[in-house]
Design a protein around this nucleic acid. Structure first.
Length: 176
DNA sequence: CTATGGATTCGCT
DNA sequence: GCGAATCCATAGA
């Protein structure tokens, strides 16, 4: 996996077109990443890493290629790819994608046939990724892996669902 | 120790 | 379109 280091806002669009695969519960599911958001370190007020290393975000400070999963609103899991140098904190939230493998399994896990992976919480549910996978190495041969792909043309917009540093256009959407 | 507020989703109006 | 659901780390006393 190349280009997983350096500035998060530069590494983020490189993830578009990459695939995210999980081999969990005996099933293989995979998506192509089409939407991401970059979250920085101490310099990004909207990032979980902005207040330093804590219990919840410790994975964000690991090396690039580490999986960072956190619980959102007490209900959903959100999946991130760590990109920052060790100790700095910085990750890319995978917000959207399209199923490429095991969409039938995803539909079963999601309890519906549509809107399988068009939101951060939905992706985790579709791929069966939870907090127990937090800290996993996505570049190794674990149950969740990141597979490099071609780069796609993209548009950048403001991030969604945050209340700080709203002006940064660190959301990257693959152009269709 | 207690209170608070989310990098969201879904269902009902 | 709007609000509830629901967990737990963080922040404040």
């Amino acid at each position: 996996m190349r280009a997983l280091s350096g500035r998060v806002d530069e590494a983020a669009p490189a993830l578009l077109g990459c695939r995210l695969r999980s081999d969990i519960e005996g099933a293989t599911t995979e998506i192509v990443i089409t939407e991401v958001e970059a979250y920085g370190g101490a310099d990004d007020p909207a990032s979980h890493a902005s207040r330093g290393r804590t219990t919840r975000n410790r994975s964000m400070f690991e090396r690039a290629g580490t999986l960072y999963v956190y619980r959102s609103y007490g209900v959903h899991w959100c999946l991130n790819v760590v990109t920052g140098p060790v100790g700095e904190g910085g990750a890319i939230l995978v917000r959207g994608g399209e199923p490429t493998l095991g969409s039938d399994v995803m539909a079963e896990r999601r309890g519906r046939a549509d809107h399988l992976t068009d939101g951060p919480g939905k992706i985790c549910q579709a791929l069966a990724v939870t907090g127990e996978h937090d800290g996993l190495d996505l570049l190794g041969d674990g149950v969740v892996r990141l597979i490099s792909g071609g780069h796609l043309p993209f548009d950048s917009t403001a991030r969604v669902g945050i209340s700080k540093a709203v002006e940064r256009t660190w959301r990257f959407v693959a152009r269709t």
